[in-house]
Design a protein around this nucleic acid. Structure first.
Ligand SMILES: [Mn+2]
Ligand SMILES: [Mn+2]
Ligand SMILES: [Zn+2]
Ligand SMILES: [Zn+2]
Lengths: 151, 151
DNA sequence: GTAAATATAATAATCATTACAAGTTTAAAC
DNA sequence: GTTTAAACTTGTAATGATTATTATATTTAC
């Protein structure tokens, strides 16, 4: 996906979303920061550029994007929703130590068809949790990882 | 799993959870009502039997059960946590129309190993969403389903 | 250019969950 | 069996993410 504002604007228009300044910036942020940010992270990340920005706009914008299929929702955390600009089917691994969320390829369509015959499946999510390699290494070395969201 | 109070008590003791009256009742509720209830549903369902019951106790108890591996958490909803007494690996399908959550067999271990080499995987969840057969039928007949949690 | 529709922003409301403090029950020690 | 400490329950307050609301601003249609 390209980062040019014009292309972003066109991308929104194509989906019948009016390309306001705020919406373009949120879309740009999601493309640049693909670590599955929270609404608050997006808000904080854009506040410098858009001093008048409101958190309501972040939520409104995200919900608009979700409805049009432009972003994907992750409910991998119990308290906060995360947003993914990559809508192609893939699995997610959350490191419980550092909080980072990793993508991994997975062919979700290849299984679980028999028992769900008669069901209309619209959305599929695969969430794994555990400890990432970096944190495993640090734990073995007796180090203590900070819980932050660095991919 | 048996429903006898003695067995429930023993089941808790085995896991070093003191078998209080409230805990036995919550466990009993989870065994009897396997529709993946919310904390509030458990609370409401037990209030008649235990008039002094507090919602704090529900949450405390559930968190104790989770820690010991006696129940499984479902984050398939964006707002409310659901609890599952069946801890064996299986997938979940949520009908967006009636709200019911169905189990389905799935061999989660059979895939997604290559890319996660070096990761320590502790927990795996597969969540599908869509419309269940009953609701599909009603939709086709022009009926309107109520959103309730009947399995 | 004017009116209608839509978007933004600020604030208040909602609601699930957790934190905390006080009272109660349980279990061990004597 | 009484004493005593630890664990559990309860009620209430606090937290925090998300939504609702409403006034203002911006965009679109005519
Ligand atoms: Mn992703
Ligand atoms: Mn289940
Ligand atoms: Zn990590
Ligand atoms: Zn249904």
């Amino acid at each position: 996906m390209d980062l040019q504002a014009k292309n972003l604007s066109a991308e929104l228009s194509k989906r019948n979303i009016r390309p306001s300044y705020q919406r373009i910036k949120v879309l740009e942020y999601l493309i640049k920061n693909q670590f599955h940010p929270t609404a608050d992270q997006i808000f904080t990340g854009l506040q410098g550029e858009i001093p008048t920005l409101s958190k309501s706009t972040i939520y409104n914008t995200l919900n608009t994007f979700i409805q049009s299929g432009l972003v994907r929702v992750l409910n991998i955390e119990d308290n906060e929703t995360r947003y993914d600009i990559i809508t192609e089917s893939h699995g997610h691994f959350k490191c419980e130590t550092c909080g980072a969320i990793f993508n991994f390829k997975i062919n979700i369509d290849s299984f679980a068809t028999e028992e769900l015959k008669g069901f209309k499946v619209i959305d599929k999510n695969v969430y794994f949790k555990g400890v990432c390699p970096k944190c495993l290494l640090n734990i073995n070395q007796g180090k203590n990882n900070r819980k932050e969201n660095v991919l």
